[in-house]
Structure formats: structure tokens, C-alpha cells
Computed example of a mutant assay.
Amino acid sequence: MTHVVCQPCFGCKYTDCVVVCPVECFYEGDKILYIHPEECIDCEACVPECPVEAIFHEDNVPEEWQGFVELNAEMAPQCESITEKKEPLADN
């Protein structure tokens, strides 16, 4: 099982979640973060840290955001790992 970063992260990219991840399974895209499903240990440490409530267990992803399950799996391996907190994107 894994957690998934969904739509609320798009365009804000807060990184509070990455610093609490014990296995460093977050990856940084241009406008959103991704969780690598093969690296996530389902610890849920990231969930309460997300100020925009963008992280869901894959079984609880809202229907309208189901595509993010596949998007995280596809994009995480293509992006750079992120382990340190950064400033969110400028529009927030």
C-alpha cells in the first residue's frame, strides 16, 4: 500500500511532508510532489504535515482524483528525490 499526492498540491508544492518521511519516497516535479509507490512504507507521517491536505492513502483517494494514483507511480521515478524543506511556489 502507498500514499498518493493529489490535486491540492498542484501549484503550491509545500514540502513540509518530505522532512518527516523516514524512507525519503518524495519526488519533486515542476508543479507538484509525487510519492514513489514502491518506496512508501505507509507510515502516514506525511499526512498531517500537508497544509493543503493533498496526501491520501491510495484506498481513500477521492473519486475525482483517482488519476493521481497512476500519475504518482509514473512520475516519481522520472523526478529528483526531495528530502529537505523548500519554499512553496510563489503563488501561495
Rank of each mutant, 00 (worst) to 15 (best):
Q66H: 10
P77I: 03
C79R: 13
E70V: 08
A45H: 06
K86D: 13
E70L: 05
N60Q: 12
K86N: 14
E64A: 15
D91S: 13
P88T: 09
P48N: 05
P77L: 02
L89T: 06
E49I: 11
E63H: 05
L71E: 14
C46S: 11
A76G: 08
D91T: 06
A54Q: 01
G67K: 10
L71P: 02
L71I: 11
A73F: 02
N60I: 04
E74V: 08
N92A: 08
K86C: 11
A76P: 04
V47K: 07
E74T: 14
V52Y: 08
G67A: 10
E74K: 14
P88R: 06
A54T: 13
H57R: 15
F68A: 07
N92M: 09
P88I: 07
H57V: 05
E64P: 04
A76V: 04
D91P: 01
I55W: 01
V69M: 12
Q78E: 15
S81P: 11
E63P: 00
A90G: 10
E53T: 08
E64T: 03
E58T: 10
K85R: 14
E70Y: 05
V52R: 03
F56W: 10
G67S: 12
E64Y: 12
P48C: 13
D91L: 09
V69D: 06
A73Q: 07
A54P: 05
C79N: 09
N60V: 02
H57S: 13
N60F: 11
D59N: 11
S81A: 13
T83Y: 08
F68H: 03
